[in-house]
Design a protein around this nucleic acid. Structure first.
Ligand SMILES: [Mn+2]
Ligand SMILES: [Mn+2]
Ligand SMILES: [Mn+2]
Ligand SMILES: [Mn+2]
Lengths: 225, 225
DNA sequence: TCTTAAAGTTTGTCGAACCTAACTATTGAA
DNA sequence: TTCAATAGTTAGGTTCGACAAACTTTAAGA
């Protein structure tokens, strides 16, 4: 029932609010590529419809109702991405854009068919958890690579999917979901992180490292705090 | 570039105009479920954009430009139907509705991937010819079942896909694309057509018969004119 | 020829979703 | 405490695609 535009506002707020941070007009506008008055207007409407609560000049927060919409959309988005990747063999850097459109128009029946066809999967091609039909919000797994201590080894579990360039960069490095990376050194002053990946050494910028999440392999022995 | 609404008007005109019959406001309105003034307004716009020519009070006719849009859309529609049917195993009576939406939003890149994935197919699940990328308009194959003479045998090559009920009816009869049917008798006064299909006798109404197209098997011997 | 029903068009309105310009609130330096 | 810079809102306007009401054309029958 909500329009495509409404769905996209809700999804944007969901992504921006993280674990219940208030979200501001300016950030919604920037993230969606619209001007602030458009956001003000739509926010008023979304609040009236009960999708979010709005304290003027103090930002918005999704209601349960709004979160439900967002999580459903995320489920669709991620199932579509996985379907395009697995079935049509479309590389992981090209699926997001198509999914961004299809998430709004694919019928529920079709989504559930896709879900079953894919074997009731848990994760999309970028490692993101696929929410269940129940509307429970999925947690991000792992921790950002830039927060891993020197000497620790992690298994890549999630990467950011909004920037195709970034995904192609990872592909070039042969870094994928499941790769094991050993953090050798944090260069100081916002410098790069030195990694060992499949016997290869490489340096990764902080911006990139923040978009990669890993599960730490508990190493027996030395563990800095 | 044309909006979804514009694409649907053009497609509707294409379907109504057959082999260059002028198409009238009232028929477009009925077929699209909008009121006549909406059609008048849109037709003026479509004429201005060069998609069709309009003689006020005398109907419209697609230009080459308009036909091109229509045929492209048909290609998408039919490839999507076949994809849903083949890949996700969705029955032929449930695919049209989803395709009706998806035809407007699936990217060209995705369509061509689907085309190749399906092995560059020629026909959709209802037997309709899938147009090529070149924009040539596909012909209907065969002749309507109600025009087959008594005693002749035909192979079902196309069935109408707009009405799911009708398709379920055919499924119930075990009549599918490729079925062989022998016309035994035309009952008079608009009565049913008596068929033999796989050793079974059955009677089919005229309305249904008109929506089924068959290729006649040239029978050696008796051939009424 | 005249009349009228049906088809077609024009005009004015509406809701969505966007915009620009102008105004207001918040906040953190000076 | 004052005051800009920044953020947010309001007011007013545009475009798109639909609508109802009112008007016009066409074509058929009396
Ligand atoms: Mn994505
Ligand atoms: Mn979206
Ligand atoms: Mn169809
Ligand atoms: Mn359509």
């Amino acid at each position: 029932m909500p329009s495509r535009s409404i769905e996209d506002y809700i999804k944007t707020v969901y992504e921006l609010q993280g674990k219940n941070q208030r979200v501001f007009t300016k950030d919604i506008a920037r993230s969606m590529g619209v001007k602030m008055p458009s956001v003000s207007g739509m926010v008023k409407h979304l609040a009236a419809e009960g999708y979010l609560s709005h304290k003027p000049y103090k930002g918005v927060l999704l209601t349960k109702r709004g979160q439900r919409i967002a999580v459903d959309l995320l489920r669709r988005h991620r199932l579509i991405e996985l379907f395009l990747n697995k079935t049509l063999d479309i590389p992981w850097d090209e699926i997001h854009e198509d999914a961004e459109v299809l998430e709004h128009v694919i019928s529920n029946k079709l989504i559930e068919r896709i879900f079953n066809f894919l074997g009731r999967p848990k994760f999309d091609p970028h490692g993101h958890t696929i929410p269940g039909k129940d509307g429970n919000m999925p947690l991000s797994r792992g921790i950002p690579l830039d927060q891993v201590n020197e000497g620790e080894t992690g298994c890549v579990v999630e990467v950011s999917d909004h920037d195709p360039e970034f995904l192609r960069y990872l592909t070039g490095l042969k870094l994928k979901i499941g790769s094991e990376v050993l953090v050798k050194e944090h260069a100081p002053f916002g410098g790069p992180i030195m990694l060992k990946l499949e016997r290869q050494s490489l340096a990764i910028g902080l911006d990139a490292a923040r978009r990669i999440r890993v599960d730490i392999k508990k190493k027996v022995g030395k563990r800095s705090n």
